[in-house]
Design a protein around this nucleic acid. Structure first.
Length: 555
RNA sequence: GGGCCCGUAGCUCAGCAUGGAAGAGCACCCGGCUUUUAACCGGGGGGUCGCGGGUUCGAAUCCCGCCGGGCCCGCCA
């Protein structure tokens, strides 16, 4: 199908190579999916894409990337005129493998038990697993992702996977062989890759299937394996695999889900590439289901390119992200590309927001982008970033300005007061109506992000400023002449008078002041800025800059 | 032991699938505009495309080898 989207062109030197059309990666995947499904002759009334939702630990920023990318593919499929659905499948049937930091130590007693059967440490959800997955679901909703939720536990209990589980167990020797061929196995030859839940101790990772009884839909098992130092309880019993008294191991669970739900696309992190490869073969060779198209994405690193991990203390949760920058910035970051190791940090949030603002502006000036490829990439990136609901008109102010202003204001004044003062200053900077800022959701959020940023990371690091000696004298004279009782106007006039009186170009004079205070050559109108910040506070800030050696006299 | 990603301008990165005159943004420099409100405008400098081979009329792009940075997996998912 994809090929027919490209119109035939006349042959000739002018068209050499021009049949290569630039494309955005999500659009390409969507076209590939459709082409593939048609070739396979599957019915394509609803194209289901899937994303797993972890339920074993706290979600981090990478967890939402998987779902976000899958959702992007769903949007792209819909744009091509197909119905599509995102399945968010919670892995709450998985056993607890380790007790994450932040969960009571004594939870080690639950190791090996399905997380949906472990009590919620905080008591607010029906289980540990539900608590964890609900945190991720909450984040997905904040990101504007629509999905159909399926709980793994429910899936097993409802019989959704019965057919596939039966097939896998009946063909367990074939499954075992594939596993051995692809990744090897330390289990004895002929191992049956299914985890029955021990009726007595409730664990699944300490059991071993002794025998499959297909005609009764059950297995005989022994709870005699060791898992993470925990020994099985020794119980021997039988479990129905049709009622879901257990679960498939990873070597087959994806395959079962794909076949049962008819999944055509699922992204995966590189940590489970082996798992994917095995499952692809099992789906194809045992279940007779051609596995979904996939993309592999890299894990996230922090700004110093170190792996994000709980022990390193650099974990970013989606909830933390939302305290510092908007969901659309995160969507943009995730949709930009899917390969290459990504580094991400909350401290860089002003950069991400700046990029978002620039891209929104560029989107409304597309004709200015010369290269067709860049044009298409930017156009689609922004349309996906705004979930196909329309890219907003650029707003007339910058986050960097809001952050600068907020970082200079006293911090103990309360949010509403901070908002008012910031609106006042920003309105003067950009020449917009302060009331419209106060009722503007983006502005309100900007002030919120900026407040959090300053409280967590301090003011933005300002570089050293070199200032011409004569200009510096003028600046000093200006600072000395300031007094508490001056109005906005007085201060503004004083600035001009001082500059002229000292024979310094007005532009240079202002530039110097803004560089010292904000680290950038322009800022909100000076009189009101100093007045809102407070003359004495302003003098302190200036004195500090001098003391810290940030301001260097240049002849 | 197995596998993956990255290396292109000072910085952040596109471009590589399908080989056809090295790109963007930021930064920098020059010029313009303005009693700072620029969310600017015009121009400019700057790259042995990590290194070495190979294929080719032609390689950033394909193949092989190496160097540097980083990541993942080893039965848990």
């Amino acid at each position: 199908m994809g090929k027919f989207l490209i119109a035939p062109r006349p042959v000739g030197p002018i068209y050499m190579g021009s049949e290569r059309r630039p494309h955005f990666w999500l659009d390409k995947i969507a076209r590939d999916i459709i082409e593939r499904e048609e070739r396979l002759g599957r019915k394509i009334d609803v194209l289901r894409v899937e994303s797993g939702i972890g339920a074993s630990g706290f979600p981090h920023i990478g967890s939402v990337g998987d779902s976000l990318r899958a959702y992007g593919v769903k949007l792209a499929l819909e744009e091509l005129g197909y119905k599509s659905e995102l399945i968010a499948y919670s892995d709450d049937r998985d056993g607890l493998r380790k007790v994450p930091a932040g969960v009571p130590e004594e939870y080690s007693k639950y190791l090996g038990m399905p997380v949906s059967e472990i009590p919620d440490p905080w008591g607010c959800h029906s289980s540990y697993g539900e608590h964890m997955s609900s945190m991720l679901i909450d984040a997905l909703e904040k990101l504007g992702i629509e999905f159909t939720f399926i709980s793994g536990t429910e899936a097993y209990k409802s019989g959704l996977l019965d057919e596939q589980v039966s097939k896998l167990l009946k063909n367990n020797s074939k499954v075992d062989r594939i596993i051995r061929e692809e990744v090897g196995s330390s289990k004895p030859e002929g191992w049956i890759h299914y985890w029955p839940r021990c009726e007595r101790c409730g664990r699944i990772y300490t059991t071993r299937v002794l025998k499959v009884i297909p005609e009764e839909g059950k297995v005989i098992y022994a709870c005699d394996q060791e898992f993470k130092g925990i020994k099985g309880c020794g119980y021997v019993g039988e479990a129905s695999y049709l009622r879901g008294d257990g679960k498939l191991s990873w070597k087959g669970e994806f395959a079962a889900r794909w076949a049962a739900l008819g999944i055509v696309f699922e992204p995966h992190g590189k940590d489970i590439t082996d798992s994917f490869r095995v499952n692809e073969r099992i789906a194809r060779e045992v279940l007779g289901y051609e596995p979904p198209l996939t993309v592999m994405y890299e894990m996230f690193l922090d700004s110093t390119k170190r792996k994000i991990s709980k022990s390193a203390g650099n974990v970013i949760t989606p909830q933390m992200w939302m305290e510092f920058s908007p969901p659309e910035a995160l969507r943009m970051l995730m949709f930009k590309r899917y390969h290459g190791t990504r580094s991400i940090s909350l401290q860089s949030s002003p950069l991400y927001i700046n990029e978002l603002e620039n891209n929104v502006r560029k989107y409304h000036n597309l004709e200015r982008i010369r290269s067709e490829r860049d044009r298409i990439t930017l156009k689609r990136l922004m349309e996906f970033t705004y979930l196909m609901e329309g890219v907003p008109e650029p707003w007339p102010y910058r986050y960097s300005a809001v952050l600068n202003v907020v970082s200079m204001l006293p911090r103990d004044i309360g949010f509403e007061e901070l908002l008012r003062v910031a609106a006042d200053l920003i309105s003067k900077y950009y020449g917009v109506d302060p009331d419209s800022l106060l009722s503007d959701d983006i502005f309100r959020r900007y002030v919120y992000y900026a407040k959090n940023y300053v409280e967590n990371f301090g003011s933005r690091e300002l570089g050293t400023v070199e200032i011409n000696g004569k200009v510096l004298e003028a600046v000093n004279s200006f600072i000395d002449s300031l007094s508490e009782d001056m109005s906005d106007e007085d201060i503004q006039n004083l600035a001009f008078e001082t500059a002229r009186g000292k024979g310094v170009p007005v532009r240079e004079f202002f530039r110097a002041l803004y560089m010292i205070l904000l680290g950038q050559p322009q800022g909100p109108k000076l009189g009101p800025l100093i007045s809102r910040v407070g003359v004495n506070r302003f003098k302190d800030l200036y004195r500090k800059s001098l003391e810290e050696g940030r301001v260097v006299r240049k002849e």
